[in-house]
Simulated assay, not measured.
Amino acid sequence: MTVGDREALAKVPAVTLIFWIIKVLATTLGETAGDTVSMSMNLGYLAATAIFVAILVLLVWRQIAATRYRPFLYWATIIASTTAGTTLADFATRSLGIGYAGGSLLLFACVAASLWLWHRMLGSVSVATVHEPRAELFYWITITFSQTLGTALGDWTADTGGLGYGGAAIVFGVMLAVIAALYLRTTADRVLLFWSAFILTRPLGAAVGDLLDKPIDRGGFAFSRPYASGVLVAAIVVLVLVWPLYPTGRSNASISRGT
């Protein structure tokens, strides 16, 4: 099978600007939706994690069983991974008491181990290879670890780092801009840049989500969590629907997959 054939079979979307916009919205939704269930509904972090992990497992199973890229199934799985990551990170850092630093280091090790094992077993961690069950399983495990890591990093920067939610959002936004500049201006490894950006979009979303729904006296805008979540869902749906109207979003085979 040629590289072009593998790209055509890939069950993940083309990595375009719209991809990254939806990814940031999805990670922000993960923060507001996760907090809605664990805090606003008073279910607690453990119960909320169990709910979202169950949904995530079901969606990953459906994603792996699919024979082609299905936009709404893919993004629903991304959202499930980021909501599960939100509540899981909060449970680990707050309920278990390992703290933001300990949680971040542990989860970074999990992401690194997942990528290492994926590369060791299949020879590549490029998303162009995500077209068969083993690669897809590694893909979703790595994504879930990265979403959880991003939540811990975002909270650590905003709270312990003393930057506040707005300051943390600016820091991670600048870091993503640096990665974008490296992608556009250099020949830096595309796989490394992709996964770096993928991880950093999560703490950006965590900071923005907290900025939206946290009380004013804690530096937030005090928006209703369910309302903010609904607006984010609507924005994601609109973008997924209009994406095929742009040539770069029509096909996984149409994009160069250094990532």
Rank of each mutant, 00 (worst) to 15 (best):
L25C: 09
A26C: 05
T27G: 06
T28H: 06
T28S: 11
L29T: 01
L29M: 09
A33Q: 06
A33D: 00
G34I: 03
D35Y: 03
T36C: 08
V37R: 03
S38F: 01
M39H: 13
M39P: 04
M39D: 09
S40I: 09
S40D: 13
M41P: 04
M41H: 10
Y45V: 08
A47T: 10
A47I: 13
A48L: 03
A48K: 06
T49V: 09
A50V: 12
I51R: 04
F52H: 15
V53D: 04
V53L: 12
V53H: 06
A54C: 13
L56P: 07
V57C: 12
V57N: 08
L58P: 05
L58K: 10
L59K: 08
V60Q: 02
W61R: 11
Q63R: 00
I64L: 04
I64V: 14
A65E: 08
A66V: 02
A66C: 01
A66P: 00
T67K: 15
T67W: 05
T67L: 06
T67Y: 02
R68T: 05
R68V: 03
R68C: 00
Y69H: 05
Y69N: 06
P71V: 00
L73Y: 07
L73P: 05
Y74F: 12
W75F: 07
W75S: 01
W75P: 02
A76D: 11
A76V: 08
A76S: 13
A76M: 15
A76K: 07
A76E: 10
I78V: 15
I78F: 01
I78Q: 00
A80L: 09
S81I: 01
S81V: 02
T82A: 02
T83K: 02
T83V: 15
A84F: 14
G85T: 03
T86A: 03
T86V: 03
T87I: 06
T87S: 05
T87A: 05
T87C: 09
L88I: 12
A89N: 01
A89W: 00
D90Q: 10
F91D: 10
F91G: 08
A92K: 01
A92C: 13
A92G: 09
A92S: 14
A92N: 08
R94W: 10
R94Y: 15
R94M: 14
S95T: 15
L96D: 09
L96Y: 12
G97K: 06
G97C: 06
G99H: 06
G99A: 07
G99F: 05
G103V: 01
G103C: 07
G103A: 14
L105I: 12
L105M: 14
L106A: 15
L107K: 04
L107E: 04
F108G: 04
A109L: 15
C110Q: 09
C110Y: 05
V111I: 14
V111E: 03
V111Y: 01
A112S: 12
A112H: 10
L115F: 11
W116R: 09
L117W: 13
L117I: 12
H119G: 07
H119R: 14
M121Q: 14
M121S: 13
M121E: 15
M121K: 14
M121C: 14
G123H: 08
V125F: 01
S126G: 13
S126R: 07
V127L: 13
V127T: 10
A128Y: 05
A128H: 06
H131E: 12
H131Q: 11
